[in-house]
Amino acid sequence: MNTKTAENRDGLAASVRPRFQTLRRDRWWRAPLVTVVVLVGFIVYGTWVAFANEHYFTDPYLSPFYSPCLASNCAHVTLPVIGDWWTLSPALLILPFPLGFRLTCYYYRKAYYRGFWLSPPACAVTEPHRRYTGETRFPLILQNIHRYFFYLAIPFPIILFVDGIRAFSFPDGFGMGLGTLILLVNAGLLGAYTLSCHSCRHLCGGHVDVFSRSPVRSRLWLFVSRLNVRHGEIAWVSLFGVALTDVYVRLVSTGVISDPRFF
């Protein structure tokens, strides 16, 4: 009956613990693997799109990767604040902001710390690192500036919503196509992602200790809190949303598909 296997639960210094040691029997490696595959896929696609500098506009649809379009070399200028000295892809001017917002997002941090850093790969699974300082040092201490990226990210869903409104205005007049709907849904998802952000929750009312004395903040906090519960899901859906919106615009622009018009 006594089949002892040699393992001491005590005093095993982290440095000598086997990597990924766990007694878990389930497929704990699936979630981090999916995270890596999806995020790498998105990064590869996003990088290609950002540098492609073509097929991002087909009247009246503008790809979210290129909105707002700020350089005068844009196919469809939103606001020409950058002169013609800028010759690279105009996407590069704006993408750092949403990128920074997502990079420092509390949810994505969880996802990539688990998926890429394996720190830890899953709960109760030994991580492979010898030392661990978390977010206490440079560069990871910079994660604390998430809220400033939040401020910078606020205009984006609004601009994309305006793009969605503009997408009712076809060369042949007022109308609505599948693209219009896609642009609006995309703007909505990004809006939800931005609003459900943990920093937003804190700024709306999380810092208040006595809610009964700040009824407006209290209500706002409750609303954002309800969204915040779904922040992780919204993060994924809105990420797919952006990519798929770009794919749609690109396919229409290159003529692979034609945009079905509702009216």
């Binding site: 941090r109 977010e135 206490t136």
Partner: peptide, 15 residues
């Protein structure tokens, strides 16, 4: 108290 050591990977909430 090492608040910055937490990298919000949420295993605490899971268990």
């Amino acid at each position: 108290m090492g608040l910055g050591l937490c990298n919000i990977t949420k295993c605490c909430s899971e268990v």
